[in-house]
Design a protein around this nucleic acid. Sequence first.
DNA 1: TATGAATGAGCGTTCATTCAT
DNA 2: TATGAATGAACGCTCATTCAT
Lengths: 197, 197, 197, 197
Amino acid sequence: MSKQAMAKAVQQRTLKTRAKLLDAAQAVISESGYEAMRVEEVVLRAGVAKGTFFAHFKDKDALMDQLIGAEIDRQLDIIEALPAPKTISEMSEAMMPLITFMTCERYVFDVILRHSGAAANAEIGPIAMTFGRHAEVVTKWLWDQPFRKDISAELQAEGVQAFMVQAISLMFCSLHNSVAPRERLETYLRAWLTPAP
Amino acid sequence: MSKQAMAKAVQQRTLKTRAKLLDAAQAVISESGYEAMRVEEVVLRAGVAKGTFFAHFKDKDALMDQLIGAEIDRQLDIIEALPAPKTISEMSEAMMPLITFMTCERYVFDVILRHSGAAANAEIGPIAMTFGRHAEVVTKWLWDQPFRKDISAELQAEGVQAFMVQAISLMFCSLHNSVAPRERLETYLRAWLTPAP
Amino acid sequence: MSKQAMAKAVQQRTLKTRAKLLDAAQAVISESGYEAMRVEEVVLRAGVAKGTFFAHFKDKDALMDQLIGAEIDRQLDIIEALPAPKTISEMSEAMMPLITFMTCERYVFDVILRHSGAAANAEIGPIAMTFGRHAEVVTKWLWDQPFRKDISAELQAEGVQAFMVQAISLMFCSLHNSVAPRERLETYLRAWLTPAP
Amino acid sequence: MSKQAMAKAVQQRTLKTRAKLLDAAQAVISESGYEAMRVEEVVLRAGVAKGTFFAHFKDKDALMDQLIGAEIDRQLDIIEALPAPKTISEMSEAMMPLITFMTCERYVFDVILRHSGAAANAEIGPIAMTFGRHAEVVTKWLWDQPFRKDISAELQAEGVQAFMVQAISLMFCSLHNSVAPRERLETYLRAWLTPAP
DNA sequence: TATGAATGAGCGTTCATTCAT
DNA sequence: TATGAATGAACGCTCATTCAT
């Protein structure tokens, strides 16, 4: 076997092990949720050694970043497949799948906050990437349907993100969790994207 | 000693212990920062037992809430003493002391997010109070100087908070930390409060 | 309860927990030997948390030091109870219980070497103490029965230790393990303590 | 290329790889010491895979045995080049280079003890060989200059080794490290080799 | 021989929190 | 109120060694 072929074969094995770990983790989460995921359980199911886990992921958090990032990407795929929303109401509606996932567990939202808007480490992880992608999706919508013309679509998209986070945050807040996130988001977006003349 | 006098003496001791704990915690933080604060170290300096700590604070988080809340209040005192800003630029400027504190440590920002917009527990703690107070201060500014009239001052204030958080978040994000928070905040506020006709 | 009484009561509990751990460890060793001892197994049997173990012993090695040191002390008690040996042969014989224990497991001898003659850390642990005690016992013998008079009893005792270690070492050595330690020790001691005129 | 030539070429490559590994290990040791040597680091510097290391050395210990054994041999070369010592003082002095190396690191002394006087494995490795060689050197000295005549030169040499180890051990012991090894060794050797009449 | 991903078994750690006294 | 020993449940780590390719 040539060196090149060997390198490829090796990489294949690596990829396979990584996939086994990710699959096992996903399975655990499906059954018990994100917060309940234990590294021990994951390696047990994946049928690999604990050391192998840490050879593939720096720590548990890195795996969470992968998994949650992947899930957000799946939600963004759904969102992207939709036609560009024509109204604020449609836009709020379109963002609901993403918001639903982000609010499925308090722990998930914490991980997202920690990795996205506020990544301390230099490496841009999967979740941080999705925030970029989300901004792009919204930006594209705003090209098709420019609600405001005084500021760039990019800036409008940043605002949409800020209000999405605000809406979710308030949902977890005991003072304000009576208003559904969808309604709150719509209120914010209307004020942000269609200021009265 | 009368029963009443005794009760008073006891209360005095309680207050004294509490003060010792708060002082010790503040001292530790001054030297090593918020994240590095350990209950162990605090009780050691305060000269009390570990159990005593938890007789005074529900948990470590409650102490953090106190300390960080107090610091934010101090910043709000400064902000409140200022005259109502006449321009967006002045408003951004006025909010800087608060932002500076909130960005002093990644950990501090996390605690703030957790207790403010996203408090899971029912009790409204010191930090949550400061968010309320901040909204009030901004609302008052907007009564004096109504940048927008199509939406309520309260809603405008909520937006100001959302953008403050967004600006700070992006500051911690490696992708976007080249733009200073003050500039970013001003951009956001201008777009939010003075939409072009 | 007074502060003093409280402190005493607390210490009692501490002592009790420590005893539970030592007993559990001893039990495991009796069944499976020193090398096979696992911290996990010890805390399980002692019925305490793992954290408690490390609150009592710096690490597994520190516990080993305690246990093996205690066992050597037991052997020294036996040795000390004997009348001072009158001949080299009797002296070699007297030291046999100690040698037997020290050679019961290769691992035990390694731990002993590491903690005794060659302790790197400043604290004198239990095993190091026993080496001092052993020297004292032998020194006392040599006061009663001075085989040599040209050098001090202390120096003679140091030599006895050196030859004991040498005899044991060679016993573990594949090249020389045909000669029984007792015979080798006797040869050494005769040459060391009763040089021909 | 003939089969023979091929075999030779292969052998050449093998030797080259082995040399690369030894050089790399020596380099790591020069920089960080024996204890800090990691197989990972060695193969990295040698530019070979980890598995290759174990194709050349049974285990890490075997490499250590090689390296430390080689160094002791170098010290013995120096010792052997000296004229036979005429006095105990000269003999102690002559052994100093060896002792200096053996005390350079606690870890080195442990490895030496493990492989020499106390080798568990059947094969006589480099370090064990050096102990044999050291005994021979000392035995030769004692032929030239027979300090004692009541016991064989071989037995005297064994005693010299025992006392060398004892002197080194005590040097690492916090209780006794105030006396320099050279002085202690001389005291021992005088008592061992020139007992007063 | 060479490769390097995978192994693995246990240690040490963490440290906020509890609870019997 | 005060005490402080005990808890606990994973996590992270170690790193020499193996083995399928």
